[in-house]
Design a protein around this nucleic acid. Structure first.
Lengths: 252, 252
DNA sequence: ATGGGTGTTGCGCATGATGCAACGAACAGA
DNA sequence: TCTGTTCGTTGCATCATGCGCAACACCCAT
Protein backbone atom coordinates (compact mmCIF):
# COMPACT_ATOMS: atom_id res chain seq x y z
CA UNK A 1 0.00 0.00 0.00
CA UNK A 2 1.13 3.44 -0.89
CA UNK A 3 1.96 5.80 1.92
CA UNK A 4 1.40 8.98 -0.05
CA UNK A 5 -1.98 7.94 -1.34
CA UNK A 6 -2.90 6.62 2.06
CA UNK A 7 -2.25 10.02 3.59
CA UNK A 8 -4.05 11.86 0.85
CA UNK A 9 -7.14 9.73 1.18
CA UNK A 10 -7.12 10.14 4.93
CA UNK A 11 -7.66 13.83 4.39
CA UNK A 12 -11.08 13.33 2.87
CA UNK A 13 -12.97 11.84 5.83
CA UNK A 14 -11.29 14.43 7.94
CA UNK A 15 -12.68 17.22 5.80
CA UNK A 16 -16.08 15.57 5.76
CA UNK A 17 -16.36 16.58 9.41
CA UNK A 18 -16.11 20.18 8.40
CA UNK A 19 -13.74 22.70 6.86
CA UNK A 20 -10.17 22.72 8.11
CA UNK A 21 -7.12 24.85 7.48
CA UNK A 22 -3.71 23.67 6.42
CA UNK A 23 -2.30 23.46 9.93
CA UNK A 24 -5.17 21.36 11.21
CA UNK A 25 -4.88 18.95 8.33
CA UNK A 26 -1.14 18.61 8.81
CA UNK A 27 -1.57 18.01 12.52
CA UNK A 28 -4.24 15.38 12.18
CA UNK A 29 -2.22 13.59 9.53
CA UNK A 30 0.91 13.85 11.61
CA UNK A 31 2.95 15.29 8.76
CA UNK A 32 4.72 18.52 8.01
CA UNK A 33 2.68 21.40 6.69
CA UNK A 34 4.50 21.37 3.39
CA UNK A 35 3.58 17.74 2.91
CA UNK A 36 -0.05 18.39 3.70
CA UNK A 37 0.01 21.30 1.31
CA UNK A 38 1.27 19.16 -1.54
CA UNK A 39 -1.36 16.52 -0.90
CA UNK A 40 -4.13 19.09 -0.67
CA UNK A 41 -2.97 20.67 -3.88
CA UNK A 42 -3.18 17.37 -5.67
CA UNK A 43 -6.63 16.72 -4.26
CA UNK A 44 -7.58 20.21 -5.30
CA UNK A 45 -6.47 19.72 -8.88
CA UNK A 46 -8.74 16.75 -9.12
CA UNK A 47 -11.60 18.71 -7.62
CA UNK A 48 -11.92 16.52 -4.57
CA UNK A 49 -11.18 19.43 -2.35
CA UNK A 50 -12.37 22.99 -2.53
CA UNK A 51 -10.78 26.01 -1.06
CA UNK A 52 -13.04 28.66 0.34
CA UNK A 53 -12.15 32.34 0.62
CA UNK A 54 -10.89 32.03 4.15
CA UNK A 55 -8.40 29.55 2.70
CA UNK A 56 -9.84 26.65 4.56
CA UNK A 57 -10.42 23.44 2.69
CA UNK A 58 -13.59 21.45 2.35
CA UNK A 59 -14.73 18.60 0.15
CA UNK A 60 -15.21 19.57 -3.47
CA UNK A 61 -17.91 19.09 -6.04
CA UNK A 62 -16.05 16.35 -7.83
CA UNK A 63 -16.45 14.08 -4.87
CA UNK A 64 -20.17 14.64 -4.86
CA UNK A 65 -20.35 13.89 -8.55
CA UNK A 66 -18.42 10.66 -8.07
CA UNK A 67 -20.54 9.68 -5.12
CA UNK A 68 -23.56 10.17 -7.30
CA UNK A 69 -22.13 7.83 -9.91
CA UNK A 70 -21.12 5.35 -7.24
CA UNK A 71 -24.64 5.15 -5.96
CA UNK A 72 -26.05 4.92 -9.45
CA UNK A 73 -23.88 1.88 -9.97
CA UNK A 74 -25.82 0.33 -7.13
CA UNK A 75 -28.85 -0.20 -9.25
CA UNK A 76 -30.75 -2.00 -6.51
CA UNK A 77 -31.45 1.38 -5.08
CA UNK A 78 -33.08 2.71 -8.18
CA UNK A 79 -35.27 -0.33 -8.57
CA UNK A 80 -36.17 -0.53 -4.91
CA UNK A 81 -37.00 3.10 -4.26
CA UNK A 82 -40.55 3.28 -5.61
CA UNK A 83 -41.41 0.12 -3.72
CA UNK A 84 -40.03 1.54 -0.51
CA UNK A 85 -42.13 4.63 -1.00
CA UNK A 86 -45.19 2.54 -1.60
CA UNK A 87 -44.52 0.45 1.48
CA UNK A 88 -44.18 3.62 3.48
CA UNK A 89 -47.46 4.86 2.06
CA UNK A 90 -49.12 1.65 3.21
CA UNK A 91 -47.74 1.35 6.70
CA UNK A 92 -46.54 4.87 7.47
CA UNK A 93 -43.31 3.85 9.17
CA UNK A 94 -39.69 4.53 8.37
CA UNK A 95 -38.32 2.26 5.65
CA UNK A 96 -34.62 1.55 5.15
CA UNK A 97 -32.57 -0.05 2.41
CA UNK A 98 -29.03 -1.29 3.10
CA UNK A 99 -26.20 -3.13 1.41
CA UNK A 100 -23.17 -5.02 2.67
CA UNK A 101 -19.80 -3.94 1.42
CA UNK A 102 -16.31 -4.46 2.74
CA UNK A 103 -17.35 -5.70 6.13
CA UNK A 104 -19.71 -2.83 6.64
CA UNK A 105 -23.43 -2.44 6.28
CA UNK A 106 -24.51 0.89 4.84
CA UNK A 107 -27.89 2.50 4.55
CA UNK A 108 -28.33 3.54 0.97
CA UNK A 109 -31.91 4.70 1.04
CA UNK A 110 -34.51 5.76 3.54
CA UNK A 111 -38.12 6.85 3.48
CA UNK A 112 -39.15 8.82 6.52
CA UNK A 113 -42.00 7.90 8.77
CA UNK A 114 -45.20 9.83 8.37
CA UNK A 115 -45.52 9.94 12.12
CA UNK A 116 -44.06 12.86 13.98
CA UNK A 117 -41.73 10.63 15.96
CA UNK A 118 -38.77 9.87 13.76
CA UNK A 119 -35.69 7.84 14.28
CA UNK A 120 -32.17 8.94 13.82
CA UNK A 121 -30.38 7.25 11.00
CA UNK A 122 -28.48 8.55 8.09
CA UNK A 123 -28.20 7.18 4.63
CA UNK A 124 -24.57 6.62 3.85
CA UNK A 125 -23.88 5.92 7.47
CA UNK A 126 -22.63 2.53 8.63
CA UNK A 127 -25.30 0.58 10.47
CA UNK A 128 -25.05 -0.83 13.97
CA UNK A 129 -23.96 -4.10 12.49
CA UNK A 130 -24.54 -6.42 15.43
CA UNK A 131 -28.15 -5.52 16.08
CA UNK A 132 -29.85 -4.04 13.02
CA UNK A 133 -32.27 -6.29 11.19
CA UNK A 134 -30.82 -5.38 7.81
CA UNK A 135 -27.31 -6.21 9.02
CA UNK A 136 -28.40 -9.63 10.20
CA UNK A 137 -30.01 -10.34 6.85
CA UNK A 138 -26.97 -9.32 4.87
CA UNK A 139 -24.47 -11.17 7.04
CA UNK A 140 -26.64 -14.26 7.30
CA UNK A 141 -26.18 -14.80 3.60
CA UNK A 142 -22.39 -15.00 3.78
CA UNK A 143 -20.65 -18.35 3.82
CA UNK A 144 -20.24 -20.02 7.18
CA UNK A 145 -16.48 -19.30 7.50
CA UNK A 146 -17.02 -15.67 6.49
CA UNK A 147 -19.76 -15.26 9.02
CA UNK A 148 -17.58 -16.68 11.73
CA UNK A 149 -14.59 -14.58 10.74
CA UNK A 150 -16.63 -11.41 10.88
CA UNK A 151 -18.52 -12.34 14.03
CA UNK A 152 -15.24 -12.76 15.86
CA UNK A 153 -13.85 -9.51 14.60
CA UNK A 154 -16.81 -7.39 15.66
CA UNK A 155 -17.37 -5.45 18.82
CA UNK A 156 -20.65 -6.06 20.60
CA UNK A 157 -21.65 -2.78 22.19
CA UNK A 158 -24.61 -3.12 24.54
CA UNK A 159 -26.77 -0.34 23.18
CA UNK A 160 -29.56 -1.72 25.30
CA UNK A 161 -30.13 -4.74 27.52
CA UNK A 162 -31.48 -6.55 24.50
CA UNK A 163 -28.49 -5.96 22.25
CA UNK A 164 -26.74 -9.03 20.90
CA UNK A 165 -24.01 -9.55 23.49
CA UNK A 166 -21.30 -11.61 21.81
CA UNK A 167 -20.12 -13.54 18.77
CA UNK A 168 -21.80 -16.77 19.83
CA UNK A 169 -25.22 -15.20 20.19
CA UNK A 170 -24.73 -13.32 16.97
CA UNK A 171 -23.91 -16.43 14.97
CA UNK A 172 -26.90 -18.17 16.45
CA UNK A 173 -29.09 -15.24 15.48
CA UNK A 174 -27.69 -15.29 11.96
CA UNK A 175 -28.51 -18.99 11.68
CA UNK A 176 -32.09 -18.27 12.67
CA UNK A 177 -32.37 -15.42 10.22
CA UNK A 178 -30.85 -17.51 7.46
CA UNK A 179 -33.36 -20.23 8.15
CA UNK A 180 -36.51 -18.16 8.39
CA UNK A 181 -35.73 -15.63 5.69
CA UNK A 182 -36.51 -12.53 7.70
CA UNK A 183 -35.10 -10.69 10.70
CA UNK A 184 -36.05 -8.47 13.56
CA UNK A 185 -34.44 -6.02 15.88
CA UNK A 186 -36.59 -5.69 18.96
CA UNK A 187 -35.15 -2.85 20.98
CA UNK A 188 -31.59 -4.00 20.40
CA UNK A 189 -30.37 -0.66 19.15
CA UNK A 190 -32.64 1.76 20.86
CA UNK A 191 -34.80 0.56 23.68
CA UNK A 192 -38.03 1.83 22.26
CA UNK A 193 -37.57 1.03 18.60
CA UNK A 194 -38.50 -2.19 16.89
CA UNK A 195 -37.69 -3.23 13.43
CA UNK A 196 -38.48 -6.02 10.96
CA UNK A 197 -36.64 -6.73 7.75
CA UNK A 198 -36.51 -8.93 4.69
CA UNK A 199 -33.79 -9.72 2.14
CA UNK A 200 -33.64 -8.72 -1.50
CA UNK A 201 -32.05 -11.36 -3.70
CA UNK A 202 -30.41 -11.33 -7.10
CA UNK A 203 -30.93 -13.81 -9.89
CA UNK A 204 -28.50 -16.25 -8.31
CA UNK A 205 -30.36 -16.20 -5.01
CA UNK A 206 -27.65 -14.29 -3.18
CA UNK A 207 -28.78 -11.48 -0.92
CA UNK A 208 -27.84 -8.20 -2.58
CA UNK A 209 -29.60 -5.82 -0.23
CA UNK A 210 -31.93 -5.78 2.74
CA UNK A 211 -34.86 -3.62 3.68
CA UNK A 212 -36.59 -2.96 6.96
CA UNK A 213 -39.47 -1.17 8.58
CA UNK A 214 -38.83 0.57 11.90
CA UNK A 215 -41.26 2.00 14.35
CA UNK A 216 -41.10 3.19 17.95
CA UNK A 217 -43.06 1.45 20.71
CA UNK A 218 -45.15 4.51 21.27
CA UNK A 219 -46.66 4.17 17.81
CA UNK A 220 -47.02 0.41 17.45
CA UNK A 221 -46.10 -2.50 19.70
CA UNK A 222 -43.69 -5.16 18.55
CA UNK A 223 -46.58 -7.55 17.98
CA UNK A 224 -48.40 -5.06 15.82
CA UNK A 225 -45.26 -4.43 13.86
CA UNK A 226 -44.90 -8.15 13.23
CA UNK A 227 -48.27 -8.22 11.55
CA UNK A 228 -46.64 -6.21 8.81
CA UNK A 229 -44.17 -9.00 8.12
CA UNK A 230 -46.07 -10.48 5.17
CA UNK A 231 -46.30 -7.06 3.57
CA UNK A 232 -42.61 -6.40 4.05
CA UNK A 233 -41.61 -9.78 2.69
CA UNK A 234 -43.93 -9.36 -0.26
CA UNK A 235 -42.38 -6.02 -1.05
CA UNK A 236 -38.87 -7.44 -0.79
CA UNK A 237 -39.79 -10.30 -3.07
CA UNK A 238 -41.28 -7.94 -5.60
CA UNK A 239 -38.08 -5.95 -5.64
CA UNK A 240 -36.05 -9.15 -5.92
CA UNK A 241 -38.03 -10.27 -8.92
CA UNK A 242 -37.72 -6.95 -10.62
CA UNK A 243 -34.02 -6.74 -9.85
CA UNK A 244 -33.20 -10.16 -11.22
CA UNK A 245 -35.85 -10.34 -13.87
CA UNK A 246 -35.27 -7.31 -16.02
CA UNK A 247 -32.52 -6.94 -18.58
CA UNK A 248 -29.00 -6.40 -17.37
CA UNK A 249 -28.32 -2.69 -17.17
CA UNK A 250 -24.68 -3.43 -18.04
CA UNK A 251 -23.47 -1.91 -21.24
CA UNK A 252 -21.26 -3.80 -23.62
CA UNK B 1 1.76 17.99 -6.90
CA UNK B 2 2.23 14.40 -6.00
CA UNK B 3 2.53 11.92 -8.82
CA UNK B 4 1.38 8.93 -6.83
CA UNK B 5 -1.71 10.60 -5.51
CA UNK B 6 -2.39 12.07 -8.91
CA UNK B 7 -2.44 8.62 -10.44
CA UNK B 8 -4.54 7.14 -7.66
CA UNK B 9 -7.16 9.86 -7.99
CA UNK B 10 -7.27 9.42 -11.73
CA UNK B 11 -8.49 5.91 -11.18
CA UNK B 12 -11.75 7.03 -9.63
CA UNK B 13 -13.29 8.87 -12.58
CA UNK B 14 -12.15 5.99 -14.70
CA UNK B 15 -14.04 3.54 -12.56
CA UNK B 16 -17.06 5.80 -12.60
CA UNK B 17 -17.49 4.84 -16.24
CA UNK B 18 -17.98 1.28 -15.13
CA UNK B 19 -16.16 -1.63 -13.53
CA UNK B 20 -12.68 -2.38 -14.79
CA UNK B 21 -10.08 -5.03 -14.13
CA UNK B 22 -6.49 -4.53 -13.11
CA UNK B 23 -5.09 -4.66 -16.63
CA UNK B 24 -7.50 -2.05 -17.93
CA UNK B 25 -6.73 0.29 -15.08
CA UNK B 26 -3.00 -0.12 -15.58
CA UNK B 27 -3.32 0.53 -19.29
CA UNK B 28 -5.44 3.63 -18.96
CA UNK B 29 -3.10 4.99 -16.36
CA UNK B 30 -0.07 4.11 -18.43
CA UNK B 31 1.66 2.35 -15.57
CA UNK B 32 2.78 -1.15 -14.78
CA UNK B 33 0.22 -3.58 -13.43
CA UNK B 34 2.02 -3.87 -10.13
CA UNK B 35 1.82 -0.11 -9.70
CA UNK B 36 -1.86 -0.04 -10.48
CA UNK B 37 -2.37 -2.89 -8.06
CA UNK B 38 -0.75 -1.01 -5.23
CA UNK B 39 -2.81 2.08 -5.90
CA UNK B 40 -6.03 0.10 -6.10
CA UNK B 41 -5.18 -1.63 -2.90
CA UNK B 42 -4.76 1.64 -1.12
CA UNK B 43 -8.02 2.96 -2.51
CA UNK B 44 -9.60 -0.28 -1.46
CA UNK B 45 -8.39 0.00 2.10
CA UNK B 46 -10.09 3.34 2.34
CA UNK B 47 -13.28 1.94 0.88
CA UNK B 48 -13.21 4.15 -2.17
CA UNK B 49 -13.21 1.21 -4.50
CA UNK B 50 -14.93 -2.09 -4.13
CA UNK B 51 -13.90 -5.37 -5.57
CA UNK B 52 -16.70 -7.42 -6.94
CA UNK B 53 -16.73 -11.21 -7.15
CA UNK B 54 -15.29 -11.26 -10.65
CA UNK B 55 -12.30 -9.36 -9.24
CA UNK B 56 -13.11 -6.24 -11.17
CA UNK B 57 -13.08 -2.95 -9.36
CA UNK B 58 -15.84 -0.40 -9.07
CA UNK B 59 -16.51 2.67 -6.98
CA UNK B 60 -17.20 1.90 -3.34
CA UNK B 61 -20.27 2.86 -1.38
CA UNK B 62 -17.94 4.57 1.06
CA UNK B 63 -17.66 7.43 -1.36
CA UNK B 64 -21.36 7.89 -1.06
CA UNK B 65 -21.19 7.79 2.71
CA UNK B 66 -18.47 10.40 2.73
CA UNK B 67 -20.36 12.76 0.48
CA UNK B 68 -23.47 12.29 2.55
CA UNK B 69 -21.67 13.21 5.72
CA UNK B 70 -20.09 16.23 4.09
CA UNK B 71 -23.42 17.51 2.89
CA UNK B 72 -24.83 17.31 6.39
CA UNK B 73 -21.94 19.19 7.85
CA UNK B 74 -22.09 21.81 5.16
CA UNK B 75 -23.12 24.93 6.87
CA UNK B 76 -24.95 27.24 4.51
CA UNK B 77 -24.86 29.97 7.04
CA UNK B 78 -21.12 29.96 7.31
CA UNK B 79 -20.71 30.22 3.58
CA UNK B 80 -23.51 32.70 3.03
CA UNK B 81 -22.73 35.10 5.84
CA UNK B 82 -19.99 37.18 4.23
CA UNK B 83 -22.12 37.58 1.12
CA UNK B 84 -25.08 38.70 3.17
CA UNK B 85 -22.91 41.27 4.85
CA UNK B 86 -21.67 42.52 1.53
CA UNK B 87 -25.19 42.74 0.16
CA UNK B 88 -26.18 44.71 3.21
CA UNK B 89 -23.23 47.00 2.68
CA UNK B 90 -24.40 47.63 -0.87
CA UNK B 91 -28.09 48.22 -0.28
CA UNK B 92 -28.27 49.04 3.41
CA UNK B 93 -31.38 47.03 4.12
CA UNK B 94 -32.06 44.08 6.38
CA UNK B 95 -30.93 40.77 4.91
CA UNK B 96 -32.30 37.41 6.01
CA UNK B 97 -31.25 33.82 5.46
CA UNK B 98 -33.71 30.99 6.07
CA UNK B 99 -34.00 27.23 5.73
CA UNK B 100 -36.88 24.78 5.62
CA UNK B 101 -36.94 22.08 8.23
CA UNK B 102 -39.67 19.80 9.50
CA UNK B 103 -42.52 21.76 7.97
CA UNK B 104 -41.19 25.01 9.30
CA UNK B 105 -39.19 27.84 7.87
CA UNK B 106 -36.53 29.20 10.18
CA UNK B 107 -34.39 32.27 10.00
CA UNK B 108 -30.81 31.19 10.48
CA UNK B 109 -29.03 34.46 9.83
CA UNK B 110 -29.76 38.14 9.68
CA UNK B 111 -27.84 41.29 8.91
CA UNK B 112 -29.51 44.37 10.33
CA UNK B 113 -30.48 47.34 8.28
CA UNK B 114 -28.22 50.34 8.46
CA UNK B 115 -31.27 52.51 8.61
CA UNK B 116 -32.70 53.37 12.00
CA UNK B 117 -36.02 51.71 11.26
CA UNK B 118 -35.61 48.03 11.86
CA UNK B 119 -37.93 45.13 11.56
CA UNK B 120 -38.62 42.59 14.19
CA UNK B 121 -37.41 39.11 13.46
CA UNK B 122 -35.25 36.70 15.30
CA UNK B 123 -32.74 34.14 14.25
CA UNK B 124 -34.03 30.66 15.01
CA UNK B 125 -37.58 31.87 15.03
CA UNK B 126 -40.14 30.31 12.71
CA UNK B 127 -41.08 32.55 9.83
CA UNK B 128 -44.61 33.63 8.92
CA UNK B 129 -44.74 30.76 6.52
CA UNK B 130 -47.66 31.80 4.38
CA UNK B 131 -46.44 35.24 3.48
CA UNK B 132 -42.65 35.59 3.80
CA UNK B 133 -40.69 35.64 0.57
CA UNK B 134 -38.15 33.14 1.89
CA UNK B 135 -40.90 30.74 2.90
CA UNK B 136 -42.43 30.86 -0.56
CA UNK B 137 -39.06 30.11 -2.12
CA UNK B 138 -38.36 27.15 0.12
CA UNK B 139 -41.80 25.63 -0.18
CA UNK B 140 -41.97 26.21 -3.91
CA UNK B 141 -39.13 23.72 -4.33
CA UNK B 142 -40.95 20.84 -2.69
CA UNK B 143 -42.72 18.22 -4.75
CA UNK B 144 -46.26 18.95 -5.83
CA UNK B 145 -47.91 16.53 -3.36
CA UNK B 146 -45.77 17.85 -0.52
CA UNK B 147 -46.68 21.40 -1.35
CA UNK B 148 -50.32 20.54 -1.40
CA UNK B 149 -50.14 18.57 1.84
CA UNK B 150 -48.51 21.46 3.62
CA UNK B 151 -50.69 24.12 2.07
CA UNK B 152 -53.75 22.34 3.38
CA UNK B 153 -52.33 21.93 6.82
CA UNK B 154 -51.39 25.57 7.30
CA UNK B 155 -53.31 28.37 8.91
CA UNK B 156 -53.67 31.54 6.91
CA UNK B 157 -53.70 34.40 9.40
CA UNK B 158 -54.56 37.74 7.83
CA UNK B 159 -51.68 39.78 9.17
CA UNK B 160 -52.73 42.49 6.73
CA UNK B 161 -55.24 42.90 3.95
CA UNK B 162 -52.59 41.70 1.52
CA UNK B 163 -51.76 38.47 3.33
CA UNK B 164 -52.21 35.25 1.40
CA UNK B 165 -55.74 34.24 2.39
CA UNK B 166 -56.00 30.49 1.77
CA UNK B 167 -54.43 27.30 0.46
CA UNK B 168 -55.56 27.89 -3.09
CA UNK B 169 -54.00 31.31 -3.33
CA UNK B 170 -50.88 30.04 -1.62
CA UNK B 171 -50.38 27.18 -4.06
CA UNK B 172 -50.91 29.56 -6.96
CA UNK B 173 -48.31 31.89 -5.48
CA UNK B 174 -45.86 28.99 -5.06
CA UNK B 175 -46.33 28.05 -8.70
CA UNK B 176 -45.45 31.59 -9.74
CA UNK B 177 -42.39 31.64 -7.49
CA UNK B 178 -41.26 28.27 -8.75
CA UNK B 179 -41.56 29.50 -12.29
CA UNK B 180 -39.85 32.87 -11.97
CA UNK B 181 -37.12 31.86 -9.52
CA UNK B 182 -37.65 34.69 -7.07
CA UNK B 183 -40.29 35.85 -4.63
CA UNK B 184 -41.74 38.90 -2.97
CA UNK B 185 -43.73 39.79 0.07
CA UNK B 186 -45.39 43.15 -0.49
CA UNK B 187 -46.93 44.16 2.78
CA UNK B 188 -48.26 40.70 3.44
CA UNK B 189 -46.77 40.38 6.88
CA UNK B 190 -46.59 43.93 8.07
CA UNK B 191 -48.45 46.59 6.16
CA UNK B 192 -45.48 48.85 5.67
CA UNK B 193 -42.76 46.31 4.92
CA UNK B 194 -41.78 44.93 1.55
CA UNK B 195 -39.44 42.13 0.82
CA UNK B 196 -37.76 40.40 -2.13
CA UNK B 197 -35.98 37.07 -2.04
CA UNK B 198 -34.01 34.56 -4.08
CA UNK B 199 -33.19 30.87 -3.62
CA UNK B 200 -29.84 29.29 -2.82
CA UNK B 201 -29.36 25.95 -4.48
CA UNK B 202 -27.09 22.97 -3.81
CA UNK B 203 -25.11 20.98 -6.33
CA UNK B 204 -28.19 18.96 -7.24
CA UNK B 205 -30.26 22.06 -7.96
CA UNK B 206 -32.47 21.65 -4.94
CA UNK B 207 -33.17 24.77 -2.90
CA UNK B 208 -31.23 24.49 0.35
CA UNK B 209 -31.87 27.98 1.68
CA UNK B 210 -33.42 31.27 0.75
CA UNK B 211 -32.37 34.85 1.31
CA UNK B 212 -34.26 38.08 1.25
CA UNK B 213 -33.93 41.83 1.52
CA UNK B 214 -36.57 43.68 3.52
CA UNK B 215 -37.26 47.37 3.78
CA UNK B 216 -40.08 49.50 5.10
CA UNK B 217 -42.11 51.76 2.83
CA UNK B 218 -40.85 54.80 4.58
CA UNK B 219 -37.33 54.11 3.35
CA UNK B 220 -37.93 52.79 -0.15
CA UNK B 221 -41.07 52.09 -2.12
CA UNK B 222 -41.86 48.63 -3.40
CA UNK B 223 -40.82 49.67 -6.90
CA UNK B 224 -37.47 50.93 -5.68
CA UNK B 225 -36.94 47.72 -3.76
CA UNK B 226 -37.60 45.72 -6.90
CA UNK B 227 -34.71 47.42 -8.64
CA UNK B 228 -32.50 45.51 -6.24
CA UNK B 229 -33.74 42.21 -7.58
CA UNK B 230 -30.81 41.59 -9.94
CA UNK B 231 -28.37 42.26 -7.13
CA UNK B 232 -30.17 39.91 -4.76
CA UNK B 233 -30.36 37.15 -7.34
CA UNK B 234 -26.71 37.61 -8.22
CA UNK B 235 -25.75 37.27 -4.58
CA UNK B 236 -27.87 34.18 -4.14
CA UNK B 237 -26.29 32.62 -7.20
CA UNK B 238 -22.81 33.38 -5.93
CA UNK B 239 -23.61 31.67 -2.66
CA UNK B 240 -25.12 28.74 -4.53
CA UNK B 241 -21.98 28.30 -6.54
CA UNK B 242 -19.76 28.45 -3.54
CA UNK B 243 -21.99 26.14 -1.55
CA UNK B 244 -21.93 23.50 -4.22
CA UNK B 245 -18.18 23.77 -4.58
CA UNK B 246 -18.13 24.74 -8.21
CA UNK B 247 -14.83 26.37 -8.71
CA UNK B 248 -13.07 26.26 -12.02
CA UNK B 249 -10.89 29.31 -11.60
CA UNK B 250 -7.50 27.79 -11.23
CA UNK B 251 -6.26 30.74 -9.34
CA UNK B 252 -3.38 32.40 -11.13
C1' DA C 1 8.09 48.40 14.67
C1' DT C 2 7.36 43.80 16.53
C1' DG C 3 5.67 39.37 17.21
C1' DG C 4 2.81 35.47 16.40
C1' DG C 5 -0.23 33.46 13.22
C1' DT C 6 -0.88 31.99 8.76
C1' DG C 7 0.45 29.74 3.80
C1' DT C 8 4.33 29.13 0.54
C1' DT C 9 8.95 27.93 -1.59
C1' DG C 10 13.57 25.60 -2.55
C1' DC C 11 16.44 22.11 -1.46
C1' DG C 12 19.23 18.00 -0.08
C1' DC C 13 18.44 13.44 1.49
C1' DA C 14 16.69 8.76 1.82
C1' DT C 15 12.39 6.86 1.74
C1' DG C 16 9.23 4.72 -0.70
C1' DA C 17 7.17 4.16 -5.20
C1' DT C 18 8.45 2.11 -9.51
C1' DG C 19 8.90 -1.50 -13.31
C1' DC C 20 10.74 -5.80 -14.09
C1' DA C 21 10.67 -10.59 -14.12
C1' DA C 22 9.26 -14.65 -12.15
C1' DC C 23 5.47 -17.10 -10.01
C1' DG C 24 0.79 -19.06 -9.30
C1' DA C 25 -3.88 -19.88 -10.46
C1' DA C 26 -7.61 -20.39 -13.48
C1' DC C 27 -9.17 -21.57 -17.85
C1' DA C 28 -9.55 -23.50 -22.66
C1' DG C 29 -8.48 -26.41 -26.23
C1' DA C 30 -6.17 -30.46 -28.10
C1' DT D 1 -3.45 -34.87 -19.05
C1' DC D 2 -0.72 -31.70 -21.05
C1' DT D 3 0.20 -27.07 -22.84
C1' DG D 4 -0.53 -22.31 -23.79
C1' DT D 5 -2.76 -18.16 -22.52
C1' DT D 6 -4.33 -14.72 -19.48
C1' DC D 7 -5.17 -13.13 -15.49
C1' DG D 8 -3.51 -11.35 -10.45
C1' DT D 9 0.29 -11.41 -7.25
C1' DT D 10 5.07 -11.14 -5.06
C1' DG D 11 10.13 -9.88 -4.19
C1' DC D 12 13.51 -7.08 -5.41
C1' DA D 13 17.09 -3.60 -7.15
C1' DT D 14 16.98 1.00 -8.75
C1' DC D 15 16.42 5.75 -8.46
C1' DA D 16 12.76 8.99 -8.98
C1' DT D 17 9.81 11.15 -5.74
C1' DG D 18 7.86 12.55 -1.85
C1' DC D 19 9.75 14.00 2.51
C1' DG D 20 10.84 17.42 6.45
C1' DC D 21 13.48 21.27 7.30
C1' DA D 22 14.29 26.05 7.41
C1' DA D 23 13.70 30.34 5.40
C1' DC D 24 10.45 33.34 3.45
C1' DA D 25 6.22 36.13 2.61
C1' DC D 26 2.11 37.76 4.27
C1' DC D 27 -1.56 39.40 7.32
C1' DC D 28 -3.26 40.79 11.61
C1' DA D 29 -2.99 42.24 15.92
C1' DT D 30 -0.56 44.82 19.61
Amino acid sequence: MSQTVDRALSILPLLAEGPADLGQVADRLGVHKSTALRLLRTLHEHGFVYRQQDQRYRLGARLFALAQEAVENLDVREIAHPHLVELNAQCGHTVHLAVYEEEEVLYIDKVESRYPVRMYSRIGKPVAITVAAVAKLLLADLSEPERRAIAEKLDYPMYTSRSVPNAGAFLKELAVVREQGWATDLGGHEESINCIGAPIRGADGRVVAAMSVSAPNVVVTAEELLTLLPLVRRTADTISREYSGTTQPKKA
